[in-house]
Amino acid sequence: AYFSVIEKAAFLTNEVNPQNPRLQDWSAIGADLLIVGRYRTIRKSIQIEVRVFDVYWAKQIMGKRALGELKQLRFIIHRIDNEIIKTLTGAPGIFTTKIAFVSNITGHKEIYISDYDGFNIKQITFYKSITLFPRFSPDGKKLLYSTYKSKSTGPVLYLKNLETGAEKLISARNGINIGGSWSPDGKSIAVTLSIRGNPDIYLMDTNGKILKRLTRYWGIDSNPCFSPDGKKIVFVSNRSGSPQIYIHDLETGNEERLTFEGRYNSDPAWSSRNRIAYACMLDGNFDICTINPDGTDMKRLTDSPGNDEAPCWSPDGRYILFTSNRTGRYQLYIMTANGENQTRITSLRGDQTSPCWSP
């Protein structure tokens, strides 16, 4: 999404001096940037050197040297990639981020974590039950999720420290305790509870203490997600008859319906660039759509033969992670914020659902 790579057949030379390349050779074939890299191995270590040149201005704009163990090669490359993106855009890249998702490859719905592109998958929960809705804390060190691990109760809300492995029960109130979403400052959680019989959204602290009841309608209110500034939440409600997307102002309590196209809209996610993605049913299947928080500029990003659901934004707001059964079982896909370059990143047994992107 960042680069359009020039085919090697167009190169005027295949030999490049990493410290002083002939930039006119690259300007002649229409290149804007030249990225040159070299490496050497030292026993079990590797040293990588990368330089980025602005071809138009004929100058080096970045130089980076990294040394590490060969077994860390993938991580080293991703760190360098992040530096390249930061040099060009001013914001860090996504290459060292993680994703969490639910998979039933063991026969049970458990939570797994992997690199952003689906590599290095690691199982996180081992409840042999149903575990849903993983959500990273704003610092990326904790994971919030709901689980049916206790067969005598409904879903309860847990918090897991990803560094120590310690688990903490947050909410096990009567009824459901699902869909926890972190506030941007990491101090509070929005969650759906049915302690009064009807599923409503509540605000609680990270110890599970209820701070405020946010919704009070007869319908089902669920799937809350905070705005980037933490002043609003977007959520799903069937108060109008079918599930639709609404926005709740945390300061005034005012609520407004956001979506009017599609008979079933769910799974809202609010990006750092102030755009809302959601699963929309327009033609019988779910697709991924995006919309502005004021209800304008609704765009349909996918149109596959299957269902595309549960969108989740990358921390920089440039990419969307989602799950789709377009090839049979549900697998994870990544695309750009405008719907281009839809790429499958998992090929596991069973279904991979409910994805979440780390900071």
Results as ranks from 00 to 15, higher is better:
residue 325 N to G: 10
residue 270 W to N: 01
residue 254 N to C: 05
residue 290 T to K: 02
residue 256 E to R: 12
residue 251 E to K: 08
residue 333 Y to N: 00
residue 255 E to I: 13
residue 299 K to L: 11
residue 264 Y to P: 00
residue 258 L to G: 08
residue 314 S to Y: 03
residue 289 C to Y: 14
residue 335 M to I: 10
residue 326 R to S: 14
residue 274 N to H: 09
residue 327 T to E: 15
residue 321 L to F: 01
residue 284 G to T: 12
residue 300 R to E: 13
residue 276 I to N: 02
residue 291 I to S: 07
residue 311 P to W: 00
residue 313 W to Q: 02
residue 260 F to E: 13
residue 281 M to I: 08
residue 265 N to I: 03
residue 302 T to G: 04
residue 327 T to I: 12
residue 322 F to Y: 15
residue 309 E to R: 12
residue 276 I to C: 05
residue 257 R to A: 12
residue 319 Y to A: 07
residue 328 G to T: 07
residue 274 N to F: 08
residue 310 A to W: 03
residue 270 W to L: 04
residue 313 W to S: 03
residue 268 P to C: 08
residue 282 L to D: 14
residue 257 R to F: 06
residue 308 D to Y: 02
residue 332 L to F: 02
residue 292 N to S: 14
residue 259 T to P: 10
residue 303 D to V: 03
residue 310 A to E: 14
residue 291 I to Q: 09
residue 259 T to D: 13
residue 303 D to Q: 12
residue 328 G to V: 05
residue 286 F to D: 02
residue 335 M to G: 10
residue 250 L to Q: 10
residue 322 F to S: 00
residue 316 D to A: 04
residue 274 N to S: 12
residue 282 L to A: 12
residue 250 L to Y: 07
residue 335 M to N: 07
residue 297 D to V: 05
residue 294 D to S: 09
residue 265 N to V: 05
residue 251 E to M: 06
residue 289 C to G: 08
